[in-house]
Every structure is written in structure tokens, then in C-alpha cells.
């Protein structure tokens, strides 16, 4: 079963083609990585998958349904987004941040409270429940954003550079959590600049450059096919 399918997805910003007829298919339960230099179109593509950006041309299929405005609103109940930017509510506590976010998914009352407790245990932030988010370190804020993205128990999780700027320990902790999500059968989409991260976590990788997907394969096959490690393949493919 496919979780996400893109057919000739294209995006123009005025005359600039940010995404150029991109085709891909992500199977349920797999961890799929998008690699590519800044400006390759990764963020545009992620934005499309979670309904943030409308394609100029092409079709997006989520959970076997063609996406339009109505089906997108439905689909979003099954998607969890963990953005690259810190967009927590700086005036609120850890608990309040999660409760407010849960409400957008119509999760309220005891149900919300229970989910928040589960998630804070999952990312080991339960002792910080009533702390203001400004008091949290960068790594803890990332973990909170990570937990927040899982509030609706999503089937599809989109992680946009989840470990950028983190210290090695926090990075390992995030990796462990992503592994746990994979084991529980979730579909994970990941963008990253770290080859090590992609190699460790992703079942398959798409390498992008200038709005196009150049190649899709398992990390192992990419190394075999092009000779050398993933970093070597990446640098060769995205040259110039």
C-alpha cells in the first residue's frame, strides 16, 4: 500500500521552477529520505505533502486518495509535521503548548491530557511539564516539537531536518525515537543534510537537485551502483 504518491508534481514561484515534474511513491511503513542541497526543492515538496503549498501542476495522492482541498483537510488528521523551525508558543508552558496543539486536532479534555503525558514520557520531558518553553535548552525544545508533531498519533510523520543544530547526545536521542516510530509501523518522511543520519534511518533515499529527483534507491544500492559511500554519491550527483 502506498502512503504518498507524487505524479509530475511541479511548482512555479513566478518564473522560478522550484519543483520540476517530480514522481515518487512512498510505501506504508517505510522511512523515506529526501537529500539535496539547499534550494533543491525539498522544503517545497514537504510543504506540498502536508497541504501547505498547492502544486502548480501534477497530482498528489495521500493514503490512496487524490488530494484536493476537502480531502487534504481530512488527510491532515493522519499527518504529523515536525518542522525545522522552532515555532513553539514562547509564552506558554510545555503542557500548554501541547494542549493548545491538540485542540487543533479536536483532541481535548482528559484525552488530551493523557496523550500529553504519554508523549512527554516518550521524549523524557515529563519533569518539565509546567516549565515555560523559554527555560528549555535547544535540544529539549526540539524534543518538545517532536512530541508535539505526534499529538494526533499520525500515520505519516514528516520530519524536516530534525537534528540540525543539535549536540551529538540529543541527536542520538531523536534518532532512537525515529527508530521507535518505524518499529511501530509508521510511515516516516525525512529531509536531512547529514548522510550518516540518512544512512542510519532511511529505507530508501531520493537525491534531489534543482527541483528534480535524480535517483531513488536504498542507501546500500546507491553505494553499490555508484561506488563509494553515500556522501560520495551525493556530492557527485548534486555537483554544479
Amino acid at each position: 500500500m502506498s502512503a504518498v504518491k507524487g505524479i509530475n508534481l511541479t511548482k512555479y514561484y513566478k518564473n522560478f521552477k522550484a519543483l520540476d515534474a517530480v514522481n515518487f511513491e512512498i510505501t506504508e511503513g517505510e522511512c523515506f529520505g529526501f537529500l539535496g542541497p539547499n534550494g533543491a526543492g525539498k522544503t517545497t515538496l514537504m510543504g506540498m505533502i502536508y497541504g501547505f503549498i498547492e502544486p502548480s501542476e501534477g497530482e498528489l495522492i495521500l493514503f490512496n486518495k487524490k488530494v484536493n482541498k476537502t480531502t487534504m483537510a481530512e488527510a491532515k488528521y493522519k499527518i504529523g509535521v515536525i518542522p525545522q523551525d522552532n515555532n513553539l508558543d514562547p509564552d506558554l508552558s510545555v503542557l500548554e503548548n501541547l494542549i493548545v496543539y491538540a485542540r487543533y486536532f479536536d483532541i481535548t479534555g482528559q484525552k488530551a491530557r493523557k496523550r500529553v503525558t504519554e508523549l512527554l514520557e516518550f521524549v523524557s520531558l515529563n519533569e518539565w511539564l509546567n516549565a515555560n518553553v523559554r527555560k528549555l535548552s535547544g535540544g529539549m525544545q526540539r524534543k518538545l516539537i517532536f512530541a508535539r508533531g505526534l499529538i494526533n498519533n499520525p500515520e505519516l510523520i514528516i520530519l524536516d531536518e530534525p537534528t540540525t543544530g543539535l549536540d551529538p547526545r540529543s541527536r542520538r536521542q531523536i534518532w532512537d525515537k525515529i527508530e521507535e516510530l518505524k518499529h511501530s509501523g509508521k510511515t516516516v518522511i525525512l529531509t536531512t543534510h547529514y548522510m550518516e543520519e540518512a544512512e542510519k534511518l532511511c529505507d530508501r533515499i531520493a537525491i534531489m537537485n534543482k527541483g528534480k529527483i535524480l535517483v531513488v534507491d536504498t542507501p546500500k544500492n546507491l553505494s553499490l551502483k555508484f561506488g563509494g559511500n553515500l556522501e560520495y554519491v551525493y556530492l557527485n550527483m548534486t555537483e554544479g
Binding site: 501547505f52 482541498k69 491532515k76 515555532n87 508558543d89 496543539y101 487543533y104 486536532f105 494526533n152
Partner: peptide, 9 residues
């Protein structure tokens, strides 16, 4: 950004 990543349009 945070709100629009949820079902809110």
C-alpha cells in the same frame, strides 16, 4: 506555520 501544519486551514 505551526497552526497550518494541523487540520486548520
Amino acid at each position: 506555520d505551526a497552526i497550518l501544519a494541523t487540520p486548520v486551514q
